[in-house]
Amino acid sequence: MAQDEVLRVEGVSKVFGGLKALSNVSMSVKRGEVVGLIGPNGAGKSTLFEVISGNMRATAGRIVLFGDDVSTVSPDRRRRAGMSRTFQKVRLFESLTTQENIAIAAMQCARSNDDWRGEVQSVMERLKLTRLAQSYPAELTLADRKKIEIGRAIVGRCRLLLLDEALSGLTMDEADELVGVVLSLNTELGVTIVVVEHVLPVLVSMAQRLVVLNFGEVIADGAPREVASNEKVMTAYLGSKRGAFS
């Protein structure tokens, strides 16, 4: 494994009954990268996220995280190892406040001398959530709920962040703000990011590399401009050979 590789997916397949959701998928993510994972509906993006995060076991193949094979490791141990995620539909602890939602993850990942309370405050400041610290999720807008989920994901030595459609349902302004936050996590904190997103122009501007899935297989992997002009990608997205992201 290359020293700067944080995630390697090796020949992963996932079968549900007679349906092959993932078929021999391989990809790798290097430290500090922002990688976009795209594909039409049903391509297997969410299934791959579930397998990487540990919520689903792969039928075949391996997940190597920070150099260790974590294929049979539970999601909570993967989180404590430094990989975190958000969900397609925001999932917060509804009976806990904003601050507590973020603090839970900080507590689980903290080592004995860590100032996890200080980290929670600093994450809330970064995400402009301080004024909402004592609010409950049900009282908040979708944009704020998404920010809480991101806050919960990045505390506690997060090194690899999986973002599942973080921009869906947001207004243009809210999406712009969140993109800024996400990019700052990468540039300022050095967090490696894998992002599934349907707003392709935004993704093209965020990601240094795109991995394209179709019918559970990787059909392209490369720089956004290369991928956009890839024939397989154009056919998968548009059924013709026009520019896929135009």
Partner: peptide, 24 residues
């Protein structure tokens, strides 16, 4: 306590709890 928060997180959403590092 940490354990109390773990219990409440599991009550609210097991998958989100695990994704936050809670041993469910």
């Amino acid at each position: 306590s940490n354990f109390g928060y773990q219990l409440q997180a599991v009550r609210d959403d097991e998958e989100a709890a695990a994704a936050s590092g809670v041993p469910v």
